[in-house]
């Protein structure tokens, strides 16, 4: 079980968090202007790298705050947590 450092509450067990997938996938400013392919890209396509991955977590059983992390998907080690 991972130990995750919430930037606000400190280190907590993985069970207090929910995973939010890849970070920095912003909601498009004008969805209506997008083609079906572009919209599908936003909806469904995410990176799945072997190595360091920027992703989102939410401390749902704690302060309910979302934050970004850099995690190595090979070792599950968190390289960085950011508010």
């Amino acid at each position: 079980m991972l130990l995750i450092r919430c930037p606000w509450c400190g280190e907590r067990e993985e069970t207090e968090f929910h995973y939010g997938g890849q970070a920095h996938v912003a909601y498009p400013p004008d969805p209506e202007a997008m083609t079906d392919a572009e919209w599908a890209e936003y909806l469904f396509f995410r990176d799945n790298p072997k190595g360091v991955f920027a992703e989102r977590w939410v401390h749902s059983a704690g302060c309910r705050r979302w934050f970004n992390t850099l995690r190595d998907t090979v070792t599950s080690e968190f390289v960085e947590e950011a508010r």
Binding site: G20, R56, V58, R64, R65, W66
Partner: peptide
Amino acid sequence: AARVLDWFEEWAQTE
């Protein structure tokens, strides 16, 4: 209840 609260927080905080 819980997933809607999470959903609201997600959009309000991250988007």
